[in-house]
Amino acid sequence: MKFKLSFIAIIMFVIATQNQVFAQQLDKKMMSLYVINFIKYVQWPNQSASEYKIAVVGSSEVFGELSKLSSTKNINGKKLVISQLNDSQLDKIKEFHVVILSNKEANLIKKCTDALSNSPTLLITEKDGLTKKGASISMLIDEDDDFKTKFQINKQKIEEVGLKVSTELLALSTK
């Protein structure tokens, strides 16, 4: 009896702790290249700005990778300006063209969507599945397809905030 109870306890413990294992491991260099591509395939309503402002919310190596890229690359003739914000600075995210929500801060998704309201900002999350909670794009690793890095798009949300997304980008996204 003691054995059976212990056995059941172990299984319950295992199931209860599932969120702590198998964290999605995105390659940050690839992630940053994706971000640059997303910018290429999205149109903002006001194209007159001389730079693309990108914010990374929370601690993520993507910030470092994007910073490196920004020193050597521009997109459509515009510079990339990269900033890092913490959870107390969410009121500023409206000012950015692109906001990247780090995996560690994925629980801030609701606050981010509330803060953005209908601002023309592309909200990208490192954690998968957050397009259902208002993100524009969520990254994911497809374990069933040789661990390729893919992305999901919330087309409705993107268009609601006044952004235009190319059909090519939509075609390459994962449902």
């Binding site: 198998f22 491991q25 995105l26 390659d27 260099k29 690839m30 290249l33 994706y34 640059i36 591509n37 290429k40 395939y41 890229l69 050597t72 690793i141 374990e143 069933d144 040789d146 661990f147 390729k148 890095t149 893919k150 090519e168 980008l169 390459l172």
Partner: peptide
């Protein structure tokens, strides 16, 4: 993957360079 790999079609076909444990590889 390199910094010059900027084409989206190439990216979606790239394996992630992220690190996976041996067990994650085994069960997949």
């Amino acid at each position: 993957i390199t910094n010059d790999t900027t084409d989206l079609k190439q990216l979606v076909e790239q394996k992630s360079t992220a690190q996976f444990s041996k067990m994650e590889r085994d069960i997949n």
